[in-house]
Simulated scan of single mutants.
Amino acid sequence: MTIIRSLLLFVAAAIAEIGGAWLVWQGVREHRGLLWIGAGVAALGVYGFVATFQPDPNFGRILAAYGGVFVAGSLGWGVLVDKFRPDRWDLIGAAICLLGVAVIMYAPRTGHG
């Protein structure tokens, strides 16, 4: 159950961070205005809180692992929202990042690891 909770928190964090950054991008680069930018900033703030609910107590581990989720999630966001078509190298890179997430977060640990 702890791994499922952790994975769901990573997904929620990715939606908040990637969505927030996308909203800021739309507000600035696509000239959609301050409401888009403000919504993006708020979503980025939510992202900061979501990470604190991870069951692991180590900030560095959480953020390091989340980096891999962010990479894969960003490509997924691009596919779903911007109709981006990743090539095989994008997909291989994202898979490597997700493997890193699994190793960092869910490998069995002994002692103080």
Score class of each variant (00 low, 15 high):
residue 66 Y to V: 05
residue 78 G to M: 03
residue 59 F to D: 07
residue 88 R to F: 14
residue 78 G to Q: 05
residue 43 A to I: 09
residue 98 L to T: 11
residue 86 P to C: 01
residue 81 V to P: 01
residue 103 V to L: 13
residue 77 W to R: 00
residue 81 V to M: 07
residue 92 I to L: 15
residue 71 V to F: 12
residue 88 R to Y: 13
residue 57 P to I: 08
residue 56 D to P: 07
residue 60 G to H: 02
residue 42 A to S: 03
residue 42 A to D: 08
residue 82 D to A: 15
residue 60 G to Q: 01
residue 61 R to K: 12
residue 94 A to H: 03
residue 84 F to K: 13
residue 71 V to C: 11
residue 46 V to Y: 02
residue 40 G to C: 06
residue 53 F to D: 13
residue 40 G to P: 08
residue 91 L to M: 15
residue 53 F to V: 10
residue 50 V to R: 03
residue 89 W to R: 14
residue 67 G to L: 08
residue 86 P to S: 02
residue 87 D to R: 01
residue 59 F to T: 13
residue 101 V to I: 04
residue 48 G to K: 06
residue 67 G to W: 02
residue 41 V to M: 05
residue 53 F to T: 08
residue 93 G to P: 09
residue 69 V to W: 02
residue 46 V to C: 09
residue 56 D to V: 11
residue 52 T to A: 12
residue 47 Y to F: 14
residue 103 V to W: 05
residue 99 L to A: 15
residue 41 V to I: 15
residue 100 G to H: 01
residue 46 V to W: 00
residue 52 T to V: 14
residue 64 A to L: 03
residue 73 G to T: 06
residue 56 D to K: 06
residue 65 A to L: 02
residue 49 F to K: 00
residue 45 G to T: 11
residue 47 Y to W: 09
residue 94 A to Q: 10
residue 67 G to Y: 03
residue 64 A to K: 01
residue 100 G to W: 07
residue 88 R to W: 15
residue 87 D to M: 08
residue 101 V to F: 01
residue 63 L to R: 05
residue 59 F to H: 08
residue 55 P to A: 09
residue 77 W to P: 04
residue 102 A to D: 00
residue 55 P to M: 00
residue 46 V to A: 11
residue 53 F to W: 15
residue 84 F to W: 12
residue 46 V to R: 04
residue 79 V to W: 12
residue 59 F to S: 08
residue 83 K to W: 11
residue 65 A to M: 06
residue 84 F to Q: 14
residue 92 I to K: 09
residue 60 G to L: 07
residue 58 N to V: 12
residue 89 W to D: 13
residue 44 L to W: 06
residue 95 A to T: 14
residue 82 D to I: 11
residue 94 A to W: 00
residue 57 P to A: 11
residue 64 A to N: 00
residue 70 F to R: 03
residue 74 S to K: 00
residue 54 Q to S: 12
residue 62 I to M: 00
residue 59 F to K: 10
residue 66 Y to M: 04
residue 44 L to C: 13
residue 97 C to Y: 01
residue 79 V to S: 00
residue 92 I to G: 09
residue 103 V to T: 09
residue 87 D to L: 08
residue 55 P to K: 06
residue 67 G to K: 06
residue 67 G to E: 09
residue 75 L to M: 14
residue 50 V to P: 02
residue 62 I to R: 07
residue 73 G to H: 03
residue 57 P to H: 03
residue 54 Q to W: 06
residue 58 N to R: 14
residue 54 Q to P: 12
residue 54 Q to D: 12
residue 79 V to C: 10
residue 83 K to F: 10
residue 93 G to Q: 07
residue 81 V to F: 08
residue 81 V to S: 09
residue 65 A to Q: 02
residue 72 A to C: 09
residue 42 A to I: 15
residue 40 G to H: 06
residue 42 A to N: 02
residue 87 D to P: 04
residue 61 R to C: 05
residue 85 R to L: 10
